[in-house]
Design a protein around this nucleic acid. Structure first.
Lengths: 105, 105
DNA sequence: GCGTCATTTCGATGATAGTCGAAATGACGC
DNA sequence: GCGTCATTTCGACTATCATCGAAATGACGC
């Protein structure tokens, strides 16, 4: 089990490409039950192999979950992990500042 | 001016290394007026040149702001940009789902 | 069982990023 | 003006990543 710092850094790195960020957003904005690879391929217009590679990276980072359904593969966002990630960035914000100066968070 | 997608992807990529994520968190958690490079160097224990390189990457991504003060350089988080980034990940969440199924956000 | 369809794996290539020592900059006090 | 201190720039090396075509897998209907 990796430390939270490394895990979250890996997740942020996974999101650090325009393609993968697009993918995550489309999955987040899509059906909560999951989005099919073919639908993403149509929307994004990138080769299957490239798309598959990026999906695997997002899944390995724990941001997406996959659910097989016959010939189709549904990808779904791990909303809990995503929430933990965004919260992590703001954790203990400004705790080191002077008590009265809290205008940042 | 870059599109929001590319800008945010670059910001996420900038956060996608354990060292830079540590740096950002320490700056976020530190004095809102800014943190000095030497302080970060002491806390993190990495070489100056490496640290400087990472600080520049975070600054270029628009996540940190620098303020010179004599011989010292203060780094401060761009809280507005950071908020915009975390919000971006959740934008229009689940809008594609069935109306009654909103248990994800 | 066979063709078809959705998706993944393989393999090769070029590009980008991380690391750090040594030298350079730039400000300060004296 | 000089030594010192905080920080950045330079240069070189290695490792990791993105990309995509071609082949492989695995499920389905017939």
């Amino acid at each position: 089990m990796t430390a939270p710092l490394d895990r979250h850094a890996a997740q942020l790195a996974a999101l650090g490409s325009p393609i993968r960020l697009s993918i995550l957003r489309r999955v987040v904005q899509g059906d909560p039950e999951g989005t099919i690879v073919g639908e993403l391929q149509t929307q994004l217009g990138i080769p299957w192999s490239t798309l598959s590679h990026h999906l695997e990276r997002l899944t390995a980072a724990g941001l997406l979950q996959q659910r097989p359904d016959g010939r189709f593969m549904h990808y779904r966002a791990d909303y809990t992990a995503l929430r933990a990630l965004t919260d992590y960035l703001w954790e203990d914000c400004c705790k080191g500042g002077a008590p009265g100066s809290g205008r940042c968070c």
